[in-house]
Nucleic acid binder design. Structure first.
Lengths: 150, 150
DNA sequence: CTGAATACGGACCTAACTAGTCGGATAATC
DNA sequence: GATTATCCGACTAGTTAGGTCCGTATTCAG
């Protein structure tokens, strides 16, 4: 069905929330979970993962919590999704290094790999900041090149 | 992980195979399954589904089998995926009519919906025929517009 | 008319994955 | 040292994906 996991959704929501409140030094996992009605312990694990991949900075203790490690404009949706859901493969084939068992019979792998790159490109072109600024802006249109040639 | 199901892969492979052999009037599910080492009964069900959605024509009895219902150029990868995997939703939210329970707190739904449309556009721009012709062709590059504005 | 080849379609099984929970350890602040 | 946090692994329940089995209907050849 080509859909993100809820975890990725939650992660994006949390990052967006942090980006929307730059004045506050840090939010605890519970704060963020309450803001969206997300199970706190689940969100906590997501935030921990985002911390480990360097997208967030964490601080334990009172008045601790999470904050963006970088500017919201420099964090792409792709990074968030990749950190939480792992590598992005549109094909069920090539999971990592070992190509699919059907090779060389699987002939659609190569064309779909380009589709995969295109989708990744789309997600890379979207920053957390973009999620906030969703005003009508025809000049903000972005063009993504889809190359089918080998 | 944002990936297609194997069923969709199998469907695309089968359609591509049919498109590559226009001279043959029909291939049985078993023929196609043998060509790729796919479980025959699984592929059979996929082909049946593609028939029901009008992408294939079927014929029972001896020398029966499946054939493309339309020209390979007019069948998009999107149609195939949609027929097999169902509607394409990148967000875990809005499954069909009922929006996610987090509404209105879920604020990323709207921006991601546009990403969703972009990806759908990419898949719609790719025909079965395109899967066959994967020669280096810079002039075959396609541009996909990604609009983030509301 | 009979039988082989084929499409059709439901029921079923199993492994994997997703979402979420629980419990405890560590760390920082007051 | 009590409180507020992050951290992290183990566990459970529900869903989905992938695949199988079996019976029925349809078409064609001999």
């Amino acid at each position: 069905m080509l859909k993100l996991t809820k975890k990725a959704d939650y992660g994006l929501m949390a990052l967006k929330y942090l980006a929307e409140h730059p004045e506050t030094p840090a939010f605890s996992a519970k704060d963020l979970a309450d803001a969206y009605g997300i199970p706190p312990q689940l969100l906590a694990k997501i935030l921990q993962r985002l911390t480990k991949t360097g997208l967030l900075r964490s601080h334990a203790g009172m008045n601790g919590g999470y904050a963006l490690a970088r500017d919201a404009r420099t964090i792409s949706a792709f990074e968030v999704i990749h950190a939480i859901d792992g590598p992005l493969f549109i094909t069920s084939c090539f999971k990592g290094a070992k190509s699919c068992e059907l090779t060389p019979s699987c002939t659609i792998k190569e064309p779909l790999a380009r589709v995969n790159e295109t989708i990744a490109g789309v997600l890379k072109s979207i920053s957390i900041q973009d999620l906030i600024e969703h005003e009508p802006a025809a000049d903000k249109q972005k063009l993504v090149a889809l190359t089918l040639g080998a």
